[in-house]
Amino acid sequence: MVKAKRKPLEEIADAISAYGKVLTVGCGGCVSVCLAGGQREVQELNAELELTLKEKGTSKTLGNYTVERQCNMDLLQEMDDMVGGYDCILSMACGAGVQLMAERYPNIPVFPAVNTVFIGVDRDIGMYEEKCRACGECVLAYTGGICPVTRCAKGLFNGPCGGTNNGKCEVSQEIPCAWLDIYERLKGQGRLDDILKLQGVMQWQNQLQRTVVQPKFEKRYYK
């Protein structure tokens, strides 16, 4: 799922400083799961904003609401009657949700309250790990199910480089070397042949905005 992290309070406060009535909108999807922008985080953010505003001797009308998924227009539209009463919206969804919100309400400024960080997995509650950069040309087949695009600091396709160090990446003793892991896994599966071959240059597919239309639906969307 998409993983996000809330922006620093000062940055959020700064973004909304010119507006009197602010609606903070959470998303019931990915950002709820990663504890960055769900209903609880909406309430926490508004409480924190209230407090800093009070310290500064000002106040605003801070509304809160949580949409089940901000990246879905059907689910977003239930806000139609509500947004008119506000000067700006603080969206706690990922970048996709913020954009759909801004598209639905083009006359109202929409500000992001979280930084969308990555596509990743839940390691534990409150701990998430990046796994995929949506390159559009997945190579996991020959890398033993370990993504070199995401996990190798230099995005190598013919690793491991000479910097791998006690199982860690040369950039940090905290980050495991992706290619050492790839090597070990393929070795364990007797598949080292997969990386003995020279891998040609990547055909990057994430350089233009992409649209996915599943084959079954091509007739519907493409005339």
């Binding site: 019931g28 709820s32 504890l35 769900g38 209903q39 609880r40 949580t66 509650i125 409150g126």
Partner: peptide
């Protein structure tokens, strides 16, 4: 879900 949320009943992903 809306009605539940309004009553403070929603999933607790911290659990």
């Amino acid at each position: 879900r809306n009605i539940c949320r309004e009553q403070g009943v929603f999933p607790d992903y911290e659990e």
